[in-house]
């Protein structure tokens, strides 16, 4: 394959991490609808944003891989098309959250939209098996040599560690913002005497 195979050490961990984060977003959405807890909504907000970031990176890395190996930057191949649909769907959900001012409506609508959009995740995964695709079939530990598997798993661990950290920080920010939205405005420090009279 040549030097370009090194792209796989970043592309595959990004794909695995994206799938895990998308599944976490789905779980957060389900938990919010069952528990109606703002904590789950803030976790969902963090997961949605990181999902968009990872899906975007996945498309860019895939495009950089496609040019030297397939001869084109982009092809409407089943795996690429379903991933692009996934990215657009989650960009739409993040945009929806920015447009809705009411916190309860925002949380409910985005949770429902996340559950609907998540339907595309198994389609992305199985697309290379269901249809003829330029994209290669998924590899497993038994089909990869140890020399390739170790750096791949190290990168995956690093990527997962970073993403968990980012989602924790982003989730905390989202929770603080929600608290600000829920609490009444702070009382003025001093009330003029003429108002008191």
């Amino acid at each position: 394959m040549g030097q370009v195979q090194r792209i796989m050490y970043i592309h595959v961990p990004t794909a695995w991490t994206a799938m895990l984060v998308l599944t976490w977003a789905f779980l957060c959405a389900v938990m919010f609808l069952f528990r109606a807890s703002w904590r789950w909504d803030s976790r969902l907000e963090a997961a949605l944003e990181v999902s968009v970031l990872l899906c975007f990176l996945l498309c860019v890395q895939g495009s950089i891989w496609a040019k030297p190996t397939w001869g084109v930057w982009w092809d409407w191949d089943p795996r690429l098309t379903t991933t692009a649909v996934l990215l657009m769907a989650f960009v739409g959900i993040v945009a929806l959250r920015h447009f809705l001012a009411d916190a309860a409506q925002r949380a409910t609508w985005s949770a429902v939209a996340t559950i609907i959009a998540y339907v595309d995740v198994p389609i992305v995964y199985f697309s290379v098996k269901w249809w003829n695709s330029l994209h290669q079939q998924p590899s497993s530990a038994s089909t990869i040599s140890r020399d390739f598997l170790i750096p791949l798993m190290l990168n995956f661990a690093g990527m997962l560690f970073l993403v968990i950290g980012l989602m924790t920080i982003r989730g905390r920010t989202a929770l603080l913002r929600l608290e600000d939205e829920m609490l009444p405005p702070p009382l003025p420090a001093a009330i003029p005497t003429e108002v008191m009279a």
């Binding site: 040549g2 030097q3 370009v4 090194r6 792209i7 950089i64 891989w65 030297p68 190996t69």
Partner: peptide, 8 residues
């Protein structure tokens, strides 16, 4: 594929 370093 030769000369793929720039893509990497």
């Amino acid at each position: 594929v030769t000369g793929g370093w720039n893509f990497v």
